[in-house]
Amino acid sequence: MDAQAHVLVVEDNELVSSALRILLESANHRLSIAASVAETLDIVAHDPPDLVFLDLTLPDGDGLALVQPLLTAGSRAVVVLTGHDDHETRERCLAAGCADVLVKPVPARDLLAKSAAWLSDATKSTRPISDP
């Protein structure tokens, strides 16, 4: 079986997360969806993801608070997907350790291409991509 990358989408809007699920699963990634800070921490504890797409505004807190726990758990890249397109948000995310900040809606093809690029960078590092 080919190694499947574990991609986590942290997004509290179900319409958006379902679209991201269809899109990212089409690239043969193993998908997890979390709709809150608490759900994300639960996934991090049991099944750390390789790549994370992170929304900033979550019902139980600021998405940025998840960046360090995710990186510590071994995630190779945390990419913010946000509706905020201002410079301050971008700077705040990059300072928190995020690999990139993408403004919604990211064109579907771009998101697939970027995922492949992030995961390709991830495979160069020491931790193997999870193989379920």
């Binding site: 269809i22 509706g83 093809r109």
Partner: peptide, 23 residues
């Protein structure tokens, strides 16, 4: 304006998935 972007993201992304033949 900010809140309108979220449902619009869903509409556009779902439509792009269809356009790109993913389904």
């Amino acid at each position: 304006s900010h809140d309108l972007r979220t449902p619009l993201t869903a509409v556009i992304t779902h439509a792009e998935i269809l356009r790109d033949g993913i389904l």
